Amino acid sequence: MAMIQGERRDTFLSIRRALRGRCPNCGQGRLFATYLRQVDRCAVCGEAWGELRADDAPPWLTILIVGHLVAPLALALVRYGSMPDWAITALLVTVSLALCLLVLPRAKGLFLAAIWASRARSS
């Protein structure tokens, strides 16, 4: 059952649940039907998720996080590494891609939970 309208929503608990891919309301149902597509409604509590939109925020956060992790690695490999340039490039592309795929759904969950907890709605 959906949460009562006036009830307080714990933002940090919702975000922790969403980072695990779970419904920010109950923590039991799945938040995503596929890799990035959120479910229309939670199968457990019935909370509506289809109307929430995170738009460009998850890719922005993903780029911010991955960039801050990969840039120092790139600088260290170029300065101190003894690998050929093609190997450094291949490694950095692989690490960047893997991190993007790992971070993006969690970033979307984070923003969906924050939007839901603040009761903000898309227009």
Rank of each mutant, 00 (worst) to 15 (best):
residue 23 C to F: 01
residue 33 A to C: 09
residue 39 V to C: 10
residue 55 D to P: 03
residue 80 Y to Q: 14
residue 53 R to Y: 11
residue 45 C to Y: 00
residue 40 D to W: 08
residue 74 A to S: 13
residue 21 G to F: 11
residue 70 V to W: 09
residue 34 T to K: 12
residue 33 A to N: 12
residue 63 I to M: 11
residue 17 R to T: 05
residue 69 L to I: 12
residue 42 C to I: 01
residue 52 L to E: 07
residue 15 I to H: 05
residue 7 E to Y: 04
residue 29 G to N: 00
residue 79 R to C: 11
residue 40 D to L: 13
residue 78 V to W: 15
residue 36 L to K: 02
residue 58 P to F: 04
residue 59 P to A: 06
residue 52 L to Q: 08
residue 39 V to N: 04
residue 34 T to S: 15
residue 30 R to G: 06
residue 42 C to Y: 03
residue 19 L to V: 03
residue 58 P to C: 11
residue 10 D to C: 06
residue 32 F to M: 09
residue 79 R to K: 10
residue 11 T to K: 12
residue 22 R to A: 08
residue 27 G to C: 02
residue 80 Y to K: 13
residue 14 S to K: 02
residue 75 L to C: 09
residue 53 R to S: 13
residue 27 G to S: 05
residue 65 I to R: 02
residue 45 C to I: 00
residue 65 I to S: 02
residue 40 D to R: 14
residue 26 C to W: 00
residue 43 A to E: 13
residue 11 T to G: 03
residue 52 L to N: 09
residue 21 G to N: 10
residue 52 L to F: 15
residue 55 D to W: 11
residue 44 V to A: 12
residue 5 Q to A: 15
residue 43 A to I: 09
residue 58 P to Y: 05
residue 71 A to F: 15
residue 12 F to S: 04
residue 65 I to W: 02
residue 38 Q to K: 12
residue 39 V to H: 07
residue 23 C to S: 02
residue 47 E to F: 07
